[in-house]
Design a protein around this nucleic acid. Structure first.
Lengths: 225, 225
DNA sequence: TTTCATATTGGCTGTACGGACAATGTGCAC
DNA sequence: GTGCACATTGTCCGTACAGCCAATATGAAA
């Protein structure tokens, strides 16, 4: 399995050495002198990982990490720095970095880290593809269908949706059926799971649903319409 | 808001100094010389956090961290060590530690870290209480109701459940209704959200549901019974 | 023995929804 | 103008499920 390793370091001799080492290990290596050079190559879709120096001319390593995450890249990041910096390691790892190594790094240690990073990327990519497939289905919906979809997975009844959208219940059923067909869903549950993977059901949405279950209400009259 | 800070360090003078400092800041402080001393106090339910030295006589800090997690404790852990150790910081942070500080630590820095840790613990505890409440509802179910519950939230129809449990569809309906009442759920969705928070719907379960939607099948005959 | 929780099953009514038969109107692209 | 996608609405039928009326059997606890 060929994997791409992207190395960002301002030290040319380091890039050369690491590049040779990693290519010898069977990786496809791309080197960049600055963070901007790597950002210019986005999006990077091939499986692999990124190796960053913390201290870089211009944009720093952690700043580049933030940009990559903002951009939606799921490439695992391994930090590789010559200056031990515990606070930086804590921040970057908490931000999702895969590893934080100190130069000079023994060859086998770097290869091990890359191996782990790429393995991690694989599982992440599998999930990414799944979400992309769902996204494609969602994008194929018409605007109206999207509205109905959102309300349906929030637990609204056709009747309620009809009222909220100011249309007939029959129309809601029509859109609802289109959504079910386009998503190839055979039950409401399947649609809800798809919605969760699409991030359409936020945590607060689910939370609101649960709160109703956990609070005791002895009052006789329920929902005030 | 009084919060409990648990300090584990084998240096008596350090315990005294930190204890005095934190008490002056308004925290309730408990000090322990060894990991075992803290483990003996479990479970710790009050809001707060734990401060660990990496190097401890007997059980090490990271090992204690592992034990605490195994035990289900959600107390955030701040590591505080005299020997900068990047690999250790990476491992502990990836294992969920809240922070990793180097001795000697400026007083304000430690207090900031504790503040963040306790804030984090609050949100975690809120969620913990919610799950505990759901757990209580789940535990109030009869064995049979639990079986039906599990199958229902996996999307099975009453008919299918009846077949799997070798009982009548009418009986499934009875149990299903009991479950809905005990969970105060007004719709299938609410029950499913509860199940997700209880970890009854594993990721692989949801994944299996999605796969059916993402794979095109043109064959006429569906489920082979 | 009586009581109680649990599990089991039946019938009946109403609602919610899926599926299949439609039709109408609007706006945009060719 | 003619198609086409989209939105809208209608009726009819069947399934799935909630809600309420029950009854019966079993085992454990009082």
């Amino acid at each position: 399995m060929t994997a791409a390793v992207h190395v960002v370091d301002d030290d040319a001799s380091f890039r050369t050495a690491v590049g040779r080492h990693l290519r010898a290990a069977g990786y496809e290596v791309f080197t960049y002198e600055t963070a901007a050079d790597l950002l210019a190559q986005l999006p990077l879709t091939a499986p692999g990982c990124v190796i960053l120096d913390v201290k870089l001319p211009g944009m720093s390593g952690p700043e580049l990490q933030r940009r990559l995450i903002e951009h939606g890249t799921t490439l695992p990041i391994i930090f590789l720095t010559g200056h031990p910096d515990i606070p930086a390691s804590v921040r970057t790892i908490k931000a999702g970095a895969e590893d934080f190594l100190i130069k000079p790094v023994p060859g086998h240690q770097l290869l091990d880290a890359i191996e782990r990073a790429i393995a991690s990327h694989h599982t992440g990519q599998a999930r990414g593809h799944e979400i992309a497939a769902l996204r494609a289905l969602f994008d194929a919906l018409t605007p109206r269908e999207r509205e109905v979809f959102r309300l349906v997975v929030h637990g609204r009844l056709n009747k309620q949706i009809a009222h909220e959208l100011d249309i007939t219940e029959r129309t809601v059923k029509a859109h609802r059926q289109s959504v079910m067909e386009k998503f190839k869903a055979h039950s409401l549950l399947e649609l809800v799971f798809a919605a969760e993977n699409l991030g359409i059901l936020s945590r607060s949405d689910r939370h609101a649903m649960l709160e109703r279950n956990l609070t005791e209400r002895s009052s006789g009259s329920d929902r005030g319409h």
